[in-house]
Amino acid sequence: MEQVLLNIGFGNTVVAERVVAILSPNSSPMKRLKDEAKEERSLIDVTHGRKTRAIILTDSNHVILSAIQAETVSSRFEALMKDEKEEK
Protein backbone atom coordinates (compact mmCIF):
# COMPACT_ATOMS: atom_id res chain seq x y z
CA MET A 1 0.00 0.00 0.00
CA GLU A 2 1.57 3.26 -1.15
CA GLN A 3 1.26 6.29 1.09
CA VAL A 4 0.98 9.77 -0.38
CA LEU A 5 3.07 12.30 1.54
CA LEU A 6 2.15 15.95 1.92
CA ASN A 7 5.08 18.38 2.13
CA ILE A 8 4.47 20.70 5.07
CA GLY A 9 7.76 22.56 4.82
CA PHE A 10 11.46 22.28 5.54
CA GLY A 11 11.67 18.63 4.47
CA ASN A 12 8.81 17.55 6.72
CA THR A 13 5.95 15.45 5.42
CA VAL A 14 2.75 13.94 6.72
CA VAL A 15 0.65 11.12 5.26
CA ALA A 16 -1.98 13.00 3.25
CA GLU A 17 -4.76 10.52 4.04
CA ARG A 18 -4.34 11.23 7.78
CA VAL A 19 -4.98 14.98 7.41
CA VAL A 20 -8.36 16.06 8.74
CA ALA A 21 -8.00 19.85 8.47
CA ILE A 22 -5.56 22.59 7.51
CA LEU A 23 -6.26 25.76 9.49
CA SER A 24 -4.99 29.29 9.94
CA PRO A 25 -3.50 29.77 13.43
CA ASN A 26 -4.66 33.33 14.06
CA SER A 27 -7.95 32.86 15.91
CA SER A 28 -8.41 32.37 19.64
CA PRO A 29 -9.87 28.85 19.24
CA MET A 30 -6.76 27.80 17.26
CA LYS A 31 -4.47 29.19 19.95
CA ARG A 32 -6.48 27.27 22.56
CA LEU A 33 -6.27 24.11 20.41
CA LYS A 34 -2.50 24.51 20.19
CA ASP A 35 -2.17 25.00 23.96
CA GLU A 36 -4.34 21.95 24.69
CA ALA A 37 -2.33 19.80 22.29
CA LYS A 38 0.87 20.92 23.98
CA GLU A 39 -0.52 19.90 27.38
CA GLU A 40 -1.63 16.52 25.99
CA ARG A 41 1.78 16.00 24.34
CA SER A 42 0.19 15.67 20.90
CA LEU A 43 1.72 18.86 19.46
CA ILE A 44 4.33 18.54 16.71
CA ASP A 45 6.20 21.73 15.82
CA VAL A 46 7.92 21.65 12.42
CA THR A 47 8.36 25.43 12.11
CA HIS A 48 12.10 25.35 12.86
CA GLY A 49 11.70 28.42 15.06
CA ARG A 50 9.73 30.39 12.50
CA LYS A 51 6.26 31.87 12.89
CA THR A 52 3.40 29.36 12.80
CA ARG A 53 1.40 29.96 9.62
CA ALA A 54 -0.67 26.77 9.46
CA ILE A 55 -2.10 24.21 11.87
CA ILE A 56 -2.64 20.70 10.52
CA LEU A 57 -4.98 18.34 12.35
CA THR A 58 -4.66 14.61 11.84
CA ASP A 59 -6.99 11.69 12.48
CA SER A 60 -4.62 10.53 15.26
CA ASN A 61 -5.42 13.76 17.19
CA HIS A 62 -1.99 15.24 16.53
CA VAL A 63 -1.71 18.97 15.98
CA ILE A 64 1.14 19.90 13.62
CA LEU A 65 2.46 23.44 13.39
CA SER A 66 3.93 24.52 10.05
CA ALA A 67 5.71 27.70 8.95
CA ILE A 68 4.17 27.38 5.47
CA GLN A 69 0.99 29.41 4.78
CA ALA A 70 -2.23 27.43 5.30
CA GLU A 71 -3.29 28.29 1.73
CA THR A 72 -0.05 26.84 0.34
CA VAL A 73 -0.35 23.61 2.35
CA SER A 74 -4.01 23.37 1.33
CA SER A 75 -3.23 23.78 -2.38
CA ARG A 76 -0.51 21.11 -2.12
CA PHE A 77 -3.04 18.82 -0.42
CA GLU A 78 -5.65 19.44 -3.11
CA ALA A 79 -3.12 18.72 -5.87
CA LEU A 80 -2.12 15.43 -4.22
CA MET A 81 -5.75 14.34 -3.81
CA LYS A 82 -6.51 15.26 -7.43
CA ASP A 83 -3.51 13.23 -8.65
CA GLU A 84 -4.63 10.27 -6.52
CA LYS A 85 -8.15 10.31 -8.03
CA GLU A 86 -6.74 10.51 -11.57
CA GLU A 87 -4.51 7.50 -10.96
CA LYS A 88 -7.45 5.37 -9.82
Rank of each mutant, 00 (worst) to 15 (best):
I64S: 03
A70Q: 10
L80D: 03
E84R: 14
Q69S: 13
E39Y: 05
K34C: 11
S28G: 03
S66V: 04
L65C: 14
G9A: 05
E39R: 10
E40R: 15
M30P: 04
V63D: 02
G9C: 06
S75R: 11
F77N: 06
E78C: 06
V4D: 07
M1D: 04
N7Y: 03
S60G: 00
L43W: 14
K38F: 10
S24M: 09
E17C: 02
S28M: 10
H62R: 09
T58E: 02
N12P: 02
L57R: 13
G11K: 14
G11E: 07
G49A: 03
F77A: 03
V63C: 13
I8K: 03
H62V: 00
S27L: 06
E36I: 05
I44L: 10
A21S: 14
D59M: 05
T47F: 06
R41M: 09
E87G: 00
I56W: 02
F10Y: 12
E40T: 01
T47D: 06
S28E: 15
I22K: 01
S27F: 01
S28L: 14
S24W: 04
A70E: 14
R41Q: 13
M30Q: 15
T72S: 14
E86R: 11
K82R: 14
R18G: 00
L33M: 15
S74W: 02
K82D: 11
I56E: 02
T58V: 08
N26F: 12
E86A: 15
E84H: 03
S66I: 07
T13E: 11
H62Y: 15
L57Y: 08
A21D: 11
T52D: 05
S42R: 15
G9N: 01
S24P: 04
E78A: 14
V73L: 05
I55W: 04
K38T: 12
H62M: 07
L43A: 14
V4H: 04
N61K: 08
K88V: 07
E87C: 07
K51M: 11
E78Y: 07
R76W: 02
T58L: 09
V14L: 06
T52L: 04
K88I: 10
G9P: 04
I8P: 01
G9E: 04
S27E: 09
A54I: 09
V63Y: 02
P29F: 10
I44W: 03
